[in-house]
Design a protein around this nucleic acid. Structure first.
Length: 581
RNA sequence: GCGCCCGUAGCUCAGUUGGAUAGAGCACGAGCCUUCUAAGCUUGGGGCCGCAGGUUCGAAUCCUGCCGGGCGCGCCA
């Protein structure tokens, strides 16, 4: 792993060193908590290139006035060769201006590090397990699964880029009642394959035609031996076979999006291995599971409510609203009972856990967080665990909601959408909104070739760089880092924006928010296009100025690095950059 | 009834995890271009960051309580 010492990272270090110097000189008490100190570009560019709040953050614990502290810091920071201006502003900000050479050096740094620009070691090599998709193995993936799949996958790439080991995991819910339904549905298709007229698929079974091949396969393999056999003879077998086929289909769907998990964990195998039972015993020893009665749900009082004694996990002890059953009255495990053991298993081989769930499961976040806290926090700190909820996507066609009905067979699958608009459009679009906000996916808009469409806008930026380089090559010109001092103010602004990429990546990784990368790319593209447009009216501002080879070389060098940055960002999102449009 | 998410320009949304005078696109207004640097450009107006308190040097951001919208809520997955 190549660690990039980027300009922003360097300045965080410089501020820290300056504080060390003040401490050594006795001008600042030692051992103050510096966690809240930031070094970042101010919103208002007139305030300079970088600003730090260090003086304000430390003033109180140091028992000093912010300005006094700031003066000492300014004196230290002004010694740095890259700093051309350091001043105290507002309530105690320190604003720094950096030399042209400092920015040009960063531009060269992008060229040197290339595809690794933005990569960092902030993750410290810790292992993060990300569980995403985990769609029930009862049919092909539909658009409801798509967003979580993309967000999870982009997050995985982002965390890897930021110095984490990442495990991409899929939890296969192959043990519950819905896979029994699946098995029965397949049994019907099996009979169908043997020539029986099965008529209309009964209510309560999966009607999808995608089950027919499985039925046919079983018919070929087993003949008619299960046609009239009791369910107990075939249920387990049919369940297993059907799940295997469904998972093959789901993997294929995921492959269309470029998504490949490292681990597929089976709920059924987990149960067969006795993991939930182990967890229960462990929890009972600590009085975290007890036999008790659930209260009737409040608000709506169902007539069929009957209190039953069940083994309950004390999730209320960890912030949940109610204790939760881990077993049903028939003795089988609840989803939660198995999921609890599953999370414990994941925690064994990871330093942190992330789950990406659909918003419809929001109600169960507290209990699983409670479970992880209880099971991993028994001795020492509980493992860091986050559940990221992604909101639903509404499909639109020319502004009209696409009507879907599973029964009518008109639901749109993920494969349909990828086929229609392409993997890259799907992936990028899914990241153009923060995950916790609902989003519309309009088939017409996502493929529109206009600046209203962020996918196009960002790709166009990359294509423009490529076409410019092609055109220059035809003129015998190419990028060169030899005369970068010829770059002017407008070009330098572009460099300053580009140089923010590493901190955007770092912040996005820390917040587990890959969509920030997409927004940064859009900003970068906007700045690039704006610069490009200067050349419309002023030919001397174009990238290619034939009569000035040195200037052209410098500008092409800049363009090359912008293109590199777009590729780096898109790579994190799992989107391929295009050479032409 | 309870829980979670959301509420930012007319619309769709960002907002660097507490920073300075809150941003972008669309739409609207005004100019420009008639081109191959093509899938337009420049520029302007537009805000009680849902409301009210609180925390502190400082709040769109954190806390509390309301209002409004969405989702969920039993041993389903």
């Amino acid at each position: 792993m190549s660690e990039t010492n980027t300009l922003h990272a360097a300045f965080a270090g410089h501020v820290s060193s300056a504080l060390d110097a003040l401490e050594a000189a006795g001008a600042l008490p030692a051992g103050l908590n510096r966690a809240a100190i930031t070094v970042e570009p101010p919103r208002d560019p007139s305030h300079g290139d970088l600003a730090t709040n260090a003086a304000m953050v430390l003033a109180k614990p140091a028992g000093m006035k912010p300005r006094d502290l700031a003066e000492g810091l300014v004196a230290e920071l002004a010694k740095l060769p890259q700093v051309t201006g350091a001043e105290i502003a507002g309530p105690g900000f320190i604003n720094l201006r950096l030399s042209r050479e400092a920015w040009l050096a960063e531009l060269r740094g992008i060229a040197t590090t290339g595809a690794d620009y933005g990569r960092s070691a902030v993750g410290g090599g810790t292992t993060v397990n990300i569980e995403y998709v985990s769609a029930n193995p009862t049919g092909p993936m539909h658009m409801g699964h798509c967003r979580g799949a993309v967000v999870g996958d982009a997050l995985a790439a982002l965390l890897e880029f930021s110095g984490h080991k990442v495990v991409r995991e899929y939890y296969v819910n192959d043990a519950g009642g819905q896979v029994d339904v699946l098995a029965r549905s397949v049994h019907l298709r099996y009979r169908e394959a043997l020539g029986e007229d099965i008529g209309e698929i009964p209510e309560g079974l999966y009607p999808g035609a995608y089950l027919a091949p499985t039925g046919h396969r079983l018919a070929t393999h087993y003949g008619s031996k299960f046609v009239d056999a009791p369910e107990s003879d075939w249920l387990v077998l049919f369940r297993k076979e059907a799940v295997a086929d469904m998972m093959a289909m789901i993997r294929e769907d995921l492959g269309l999006l470029g998504i490949h998990h490292d681990i597929f964990s089976s709920e059924a195998e987990l149960q067969a291995a006795g993991k939930p039972a182990e967890a229960e015993a462990w929890l009972r020893e600590r009085d975290l599971v007890y036999d008790g009665m659930l209260e009737a749900p409040k608000g709506k009082t169902p007539e069929d409510w009957e209190p039953v004694e069940l083994p309950l996990f004390r999730s209320t002890k960890f912030g949940d609203d109610q204790d939760r059953p881990i077993k049903k009255s028939d003795g089988s495990w609840t989803y939660f009972g198995a999921d609890l053991a599953y999370h414990y298993q994941k925690a064994q081989s990871a330093d942190a856990l992330v789950d990406i769930w659909g918003a419809d499961h929001a109600g169960t976040v507290k209990r699983i967080k409670a479970a992880v806290a209880a099971m991993t926090g028994a001795e020492g700190e509980a493992i860091p665990f986050e559940v990221k909820l992604v909101q639903m996507v509404q499909l639109l066609r020319d502004g009209e909601p696409v009507k879907m009905s599973k029964r009518a067979g008109t639901f749109i699958t993920l494969a349909d959408v990828v086929r229609e608009v392409g993997k890259d459009v799907v992936r990028f679009t899914m990241l153009t909104r923060k995950p916790e906000a609902q989003m519309d996916f309009d088939f017409a808009k996502v493929v529109e070739a206009s600046k209203d469409n962020p996918v196009f806008y960002v790709q166009y930026c990359h294509a423009r760089v490529s076409s410019t380089l092609r055109k220059a090559a035809a003129e015998g010109l190419g990028p060169s880092g030899a005369d970068l001092e010829l770059l002017e103010e407008e070009e330098l602004e572009l460099v300053k924006l580009a140089a923010q990429f590493p901190r955007i990546v770092e912040a996005a990784a820390a917040a587990r928010e890959p969509h920030r990368i997409a927004f940064f790319l859009h900003d970068l593209a906007a700045a690039f296009h704006a610069y490009w447009n200067l050349g419309n009216d002023r030919p001397e501002k174009r990238f290619i100025v034939v009569q000035n080879g040195k200037l052209t070389g410098a500008r092409l060098f800049l363009a090359t690095q912008i293109g590199q940055l777009v590729r780096n960002g898109l790579a994190l999102l799992g989107v391929e950059a295009v050479e032409e449009m």
